[in-house]
Nucleic acid binder design. Structure first.
Lengths: 184, 184
DNA sequence: TGAATTTGATTAGATTATCTAACTAACAGG
DNA sequence: CCTGTTAGTTAGATAATCTAATCAAATTCA
């Protein structure tokens, strides 16, 4: 979590910012000849931005003492509530993590009374997961912040650029989801 | 790490893929009125793609038994080697993590003889970090894969789109780095 | 019908990447 | 030469993951 360290002391001897040039040089020297240079640099940038973007969201969510993984689960339950049977298995399946991982996440949420586990009458092996009133409240308090944080991520782009950007992200998302075999 | 679970069993009862519509509806219902809807959706998509992109890189690096954080450090050393004094402090500073975190990462790398810690003669408190021959070798073996993975991330875009995409990422990166106060 | 297999959830135990706080050694300045 | 600061480490914690094992319920099938 706490990806925003409070600056221990100001370090004296700093490494200079490199910018992109050294990476471009490195790329030239170390990539296979069949790797497209421009693509590689763009991909690298996407990696950097992707990282930062997650950090930004983490920081905003931390005001609510919740992490992205936990918010993910709460949101998933919220979205399917009263429509589908939400179980640890189905959550694991959807998030692409193991059931045991979901169990620990749910334990944490349960301990804080954000969710309710109730036995599923039609199949004694399953547990139905619901949001508690507290969980619902939290989701509803967090969502406006979540959305405004999302919006702030693309602040630097004007309307036209954003539209283009969105279109490309949709393409990329499709491609990558296919590769990873997961999705929303 | 292992973000590609080997599918424990095939779950029967799955939650349906939602796609973006439910998120669009949710946004409508739960965002502040001053949050731009299109921006928020684009930001959300960026969050998703950012996540996937890191997963993809993780998977490719795992063939070399190394993680992104560790590769980050090795690359940082590699890029500054013989030009600047690389120390745990300066690494911490650059990566935006605490010195103690760097210590554990370095311990891991050290145990596998990928780096060398040598006392810095001009200041007895400092340690100079270098790549060992093994570390150098690893970096050189990993880099081609690293680059081709980067390039593969934007496979779905054609040349023109990629150029535009790159331009926008540069903008976004600048903005976000300013907010986070870190950078390369 | 009853034994064997499958499935859902959990537990136990490990790893990775972080953090804060405390400590030690070395340096720097009066 | 004493005091405070800095560099690195250690100790101990938490979060998010994993695999393997266990237990109970459901299903299958001979």
């Amino acid at each position: 979590m706490n990806r925003k360290p409070a600056k221990e002391y100001t370090t004296e001897q700093q490494l200079p910012r490199l910018g992109t040039k050294p990476y471009r040089d490195l790329l030239e020297r170390t990539a296979n000849s069949d790797t497209d240079r421009d693509s590689a640099l763009t991909g690298l940038l996407m990696l950097w931005v992707g990282d930062s973007v997650l950090d930004v969201m983490d920081i905003h969510l931390s005001d609510y003492d919740i992490t992205e993984s936990k918010m993910d689960i709460l949101l998933l339950i919220f979205l399917h509530q009263d429509q589908e049977l939400v179980t640890p298995s189905s959550i694991a399946d959807r998030l692409g993590i193991r059931r045991s991982s979901v169990t620990s996440l749910l334990n944490w949420l349960d301990k804080r009374d954000l969710i309710i586990r109730e036995p599923y009458s039609k199949d004694g092996r399953m547990t139905h997961i619901r949001l508690s009133p507290e969980g619902s409240g939290l989701v509803q308090r967090v969502l406006p912040v979540f959305w405004s944080t999302c919006a702030s991520l693309v602040d630097e782009l004007d309307k036209e650029e954003r539209e283009l950007f969105n279109k490309m992200l949709v393409k990329l998302n499709r491609g990558i989801e296919k590769r990873l075999g997961a999705g929303r």
